[in-house]
Nucleic acid binder design. Sequence first.
DNA 1: GTCAAAAAATGACCAAGGTCAATATAAATT
DNA 2: AATTTATATTGACCTTGGTCATTTTTTGAC
Lengths: 193, 193
Amino acid sequence: MKKAVQQRTLETRSRLTSVADQLVAEKGFEALRIEETVQAAGVAKGTFFAHFKDKDELMDLLIGQRIETLLDRMAAEPAPRDADQLAQRLMPLVELMSSERYVFDLIMRRSGAMAVEEIGPIALSFGRLGELVGQWLAQGAFRRDVPIEILVEGVEAFLMQTLALNFCALHKDKTMKARLQPYLRAWLAPVAV
Amino acid sequence: MKKAVQQRTLETRSRLTSVADQLVAEKGFEALRIEETVQAAGVAKGTFFAHFKDKDELMDLLIGQRIETLLDRMAAEPAPRDADQLAQRLMPLVELMSSERYVFDLIMRRSGAMAVEEIGPIALSFGRLGELVGQWLAQGAFRRDVPIEILVEGVEAFLMQTLALNFCALHKDKTMKARLQPYLRAWLAPVAV
DNA sequence: GTCAAAAAATGACCAAGGTCAATATAAATT
DNA sequence: AATTTATATTGACCTTGGTCATTTTTTGAC
């Protein structure tokens, strides 16, 4: 049996991703061009597509990394105890996702995977986010009349709604925190039984 | 003052849209090609882009028309009186939006407009949907502790969540109605005060 | 060290959306 | 009817993501 993956492969791949990450840092995700990336990395275009299925897969990786970093920080702090604290805790993620329309669209496309083998970094990080939020909801003063799993999905739904409205001319007046808070309050408040 | 718009213009535009609509009916939205469309309509490619800013704008029009048709039917029936009836009423829309991944993505991109002059058929139809749902919520046995506007946005958020999960391998088991219902029950149920 | 097979890299090429200077047509003016 | 001006159409060309047969490099076996 031969060695499955060569050293060269790892180097090329890491060169591609780091170059791309650098270019994104300079000019944003939207502006990244594959041609530019491969030139800067010193490889041919075809090489790129031997390493990544398509442009989205690279973007998935780059954005997924950033989400993971945010999740690390979010998980390190003590659990939020009410809806407003939860909204507050989610703000770094909101900020990343609203930094560019392109980023939001890509996350929408990739946060759920059509097939198991398609699960990428973003989908994984959203799975992790769901677990984290689930733990918080189990601890704090939140409603208990609905399965936590459903509550978590609702939080994700409102997160997306907040972002979608952010890219909408008619709703530019409010800050995103001010938009997310009332949703989460109404969704998560303990219910008198 | 000169006649602003020529007869020829209307004819060309209508030929383009009807040909495209036909092609979509045959092969789906995803498979529509501009080149194919202009050939079938007997015009040059440039002509298409003199009539539509880009491919999305044509798709917006075609999908917007279908949504309007659904809304006509939905509005004609008596108001749903609880969350389950509301979920039921929304099913035709869910079905359209889940017919193709492409359709869902386009609606996500276009249901809110970045600028007022960008408001297209889909954004208009979603405005109309919001008003319709608002009227229903004002009539039925729904919670009153939250402004109706927020409730409506929540319904839209859960609609999108339901569809997003539908295109997700991990959640293929449930029907979309079965997924939408618990969200709307938990979101809209009257609250003891 | 040599050789065969597997893995990786290459770049010409393709697909499909989108642009624009040039051209053709229609409408208003004389 | 001729002329001018606004509007509509054209198609060659551009951009950019993506493909694939061919070539180069690496690796394991002898």
